[in-house]
Design a protein around this nucleic acid. Structure first.
Lengths: 350, 350
DNA sequence: AGGCTGATTGACAGCGCTGACATTTTGACT
DNA sequence: AGTCAAAATGTCAGCGCTGTCAATCAGCCT
């Protein structure tokens, strides 16, 4: 039933390579899969043949025979800069491991999340999955993953599970440090803008703020803690409420840059001089951080590196051994404080 | 050599389904692939069996036997909001067609672009590719695609090729319309901020501007046409140069929102009252458009829809027939003007 | 040289599915 | 009822690779 191989398209088969190298197909297979037990000189010869023929192993065949897929799934709920930076990092690492990344949207709010995820995992026979927040924390998702028996890496999960590796950053420490910067500049009434409820980032960033305030023996005025949802529009409301308080806060710490930009905007509309009358701090070092005036003091997340590390963790999983190495890997990446013009000493007369 | 099937993982094989439905595996295959020539009642029975067993066909096996991959490649050079919106749309459409999307970064500036692309295409046996700008216009890329004999859809290519489908938007018309809005408000000296050279968008948007100006019999002052590169920092420079001209322009049209935001910022630093003394228009309806004050009048691109359409075009390709339907599909999606506070009538005394 | 061990290599079946082609069934019309 | 084409279904090999296990080889010892 020979089907004519389209010329040019597709490359030689393993048998052709084997012929060229003067070995059996199985030996070529060994070389491709980096198995041990191939003499150096033989490996050399095979490698040369592969190169000469510009041979590309057929993924489908490898998958079928070896019961693998060479596919990692990256699931996200919200598209955006974060996602695309993350996936760029993850793909880089995957290439080194000869894996491929399938990036798939998954609606966290849908009642079908579980089924959707399960379908994708089984259809693609994924060898691992990476979950962007807030997917990590959905019970439906966790149930599927537990049943699926494949490695999953959670990014910044709210509740780290003992048996599941995760990658995150020490948001709490970063916010503590930056809050301390404000305190050192004489600020005492500082507003804090929370992110969306249920995000790890929301919780951690607030805790860092509280850490710094309490370390200085300051109380937190509940009026000055407002809940946004990481979005500009909400941030605007929050900022207006805060700036309406008397005495007015002299600084606002927003849980992300979009909301910080909103604070800047709100302050400007109230004709406050920035940063003299109001200092503003954000988080993320998003593009908008350098698009407002004054430019935002903020925290830079190594998003691409996080992606790379996540992909790296996946390949540490030992399918036929114990699973994850013990203790289960948990990586914390360092954040970088970015001090810019949006903070200044507190005004005297406050 | 039977390998034990991991219980729970992976699903039944086609044979099990065939047994349950009381037909041959081939018939099940026919149903899965939606082939004609299966009696409705039989199809029904098979479908029921598939459902009962929660059967998921093995992609690798389907691919190997049918010489397919069910994979579409989406290549990008720049991560960002655009990419992630686009891919979300493309994935949606792919799911309907039972295809999967591989999103891969590709460095346009690297001398290896061609080889990298070729490797990916052949390794993954991609059934089609989608190229985000500026990848479409690289000669190295075009050469590979021509040789590969797989359908490629170009997004907003600079030079549409006769035999290659593309998806784009009528940037020119949108800019013309919006420029006309400015003209109707009495603006005569209007600055225009170009995008990065070599982008279709850069060219088209300028042409739209020129169209409107010329239609009103106005000349374009070359001093008021400055080249940015779509980035905020450059936009700041451009804006400063323009606002330094005398008589000062009463409006600035920036080729994207980041640069428009820069114009707003520059104007503010020069203590101009917006929008009274300066109207600003952008393009993209990026997040920043609603994060500056006044909010930017701009043009919204249906990015997700573009992604969806791109994926749709891929599936119109007839591998074993003529290839593309004639004439080669070329889709132009409508843009939406978004009028916001950043434009106002020209000041009297200009 | 002969025997033995571990390292290297090869033979072969089969992964789960689909293409080509064979066979059976259906039903429309004599 | 009989004929015959078209529709529906089945048979079977093989896609390109890897797992299992058998065969061969090299190195070392007595």
């Amino acid at each position: 039933m020979r089907r004519a191989a389209a010329p040019g398209r597709g490359s030689a088969t393993i048998e052709v390579v084997a012929g060229q190298a003067g070995v059996s197909p199985k030996t070529v297979s060994r070389v491709i899969n980096n198995e041990r037990g191939v003499r150096a000189e033989t490996r050399e010869r095979v490698l040369r043949a592969i190169q000469q023929l510009d041979y590309q192993p057929n993924l489908a065949a490898r998958g079928l025979a070896g019961d693998r897929s060479f596919l990692i799934g990256l699931f996200y709920d919200q598209p955006g800069d974060y996602l695309s930076e993350f996936q760029t990092g993850a793909v880089q690492r995957c290439r080194e491991a000869n894996l491929h990344l399938m990036v798939e949207p998954l609606e966290a709010a849908s009642p079908e999340v579980g089924r959707d995820l399960s379908t994708l995992i089984r259809q693609l026979r994924l060898e691992g999955v990476i979950l962007l927040p807030p997917l990590s924390d959905l019970p439906a998702v966790q149930a599927i993953l537990a049943a699926a028996d494949i490695p999953a890496v959670h990014i910044a999960p709210m509740h780290a599970q003992d048996d599941t590796p995760s990658v995150d950053t020490d948001d709490r420490a970063a916010v503590r440090q930056l809050t301390t910067e404000l305190l050192q500049r004489g600020h005492r009434r500082i507003g804090f803008m929370l992110g969306r409820a249920g995000h790890r980032a929301t919780e951690q960033r607030y805790l860092g703020f509280a850490d710094a305030m309490h370390a200085d023996g300051l109380d937190i005025d509940p009026q000055l803690v407002q809940t946004g949802n990481f979005e500009f529009a909400e941030g605007l409301e929050c900022a207006r409420r805060m700036l309406g308080c008397r005495p007015r806060p002299t600084a606002i710490f927003a849980s992300n840059d979009d909301m910080a930009a909103a604070a800047v905007s709100a302050a400007r509309q109230m004709s406050l001089a920035l940063p003299r009358q109001l200092s503003v701090v954000g988080f993320d070092d998003a593009p908008v951080a350098t698009m407002v005036w004054p430019q935002l003091t903020t925290v830079r997340q190594p998003v691409r590196a996080i992606g790379r590390v996540a992909a790296e963790l996946i390949s540490q999983y030992q399918p036929h051994r114990q699973g994850w190495p013990r203790p289960v890997p948990r990586r914390h990446l360092p954040l970088e404080l970015v001090l810019r013009g949006s903070i200044a000493p507190a005004p005297r007369d406050s």
